[in-house]
Design a protein around this nucleic acid. Sequence first.
DNA 1: TTATCATTTGAGCAACTGTTCAGGAGTTCA
DNA 2: TGAACTCCTGAACAGTTGCTCAAATGATAA
Lengths: 122, 122
Amino acid sequence: MEVVAGLDACTTVEPDEAKVAATRDRLVTAEEAVRLAELFRLLGDPTRAQLLYALLEAGELCVCDLTETVEVSDTAVSHALRLLRTAGIVASRRSGRMIYYRLADAHVRMLLDLSREHLRHG
Amino acid sequence: MEVVAGLDACTTVEPDEAKVAATRDRLVTAEEAVRLAELFRLLGDPTRAQLLYALLEAGELCVCDLTETVEVSDTAVSHALRLLRTAGIVASRRSGRMIYYRLADAHVRMLLDLSREHLRHG
DNA sequence: TTATCATTTGAGCAACTGTTCAGGAGTTCA
DNA sequence: TGAACTCCTGAACAGTTGCTCAAATGATAA
């Protein structure tokens, strides 16, 4: 810690300081990194991932259908959905006593698609 | 738990069982979901995210440059890089006493790009 | 109203995560 | 050889995570 403007190490072999400085300028800020990590972290749980892929396929599903599709308890699903909803990743709509969830972000949809590609033909 | 073939709930209002069954067929398996979540989980930490974005910008950086770019201890960087290396997300190359790291996966590069888009113009 | 259904909420807890610390391994140079 | 440098490893510890359980909404039906 406490390396605020510390640019005084690792110059023994090659002067990579220029590269480091250039990288720093174009780099995501620490704050942006936190927000990006937050997004990935939300996708980084098997239960939440399955829920999201189910919504990606089905378009819209109620909690009980999601509970059935992913095989975990309804409360676990609800807790998971709350996190995703708070982050703006999914949105909900009430119809009678059921609540239907859907993906709420085009970029997330692309992320899910792309990473599935990575897994299957990567 | 213990809902192995349980298809007997939530048919009160609409018969969504067909939708659930169809979704299940095209859905990622539980095993795939675990692997996908594992990938996202690795991106889902501020330190690792910053390291990856630094590599995305710079192409290749040694550990000491990464330590300087991201402001955490060298051991923390090393631990983080080991996780990413084990998962095949980054690769390393030794040159003298330095070890240079680079992104090792085109899909991951796209994921990083896409999510940055999401953050900045989403 | 009462009963039932679908979903949510909050507390509690076991399991996991990321960091620091101390020490070790491999490389270069005098 | 030995010292200096770059990086890695393992243990330990605080903080976080995701689940279960019990209880509470909100909505429909009798």
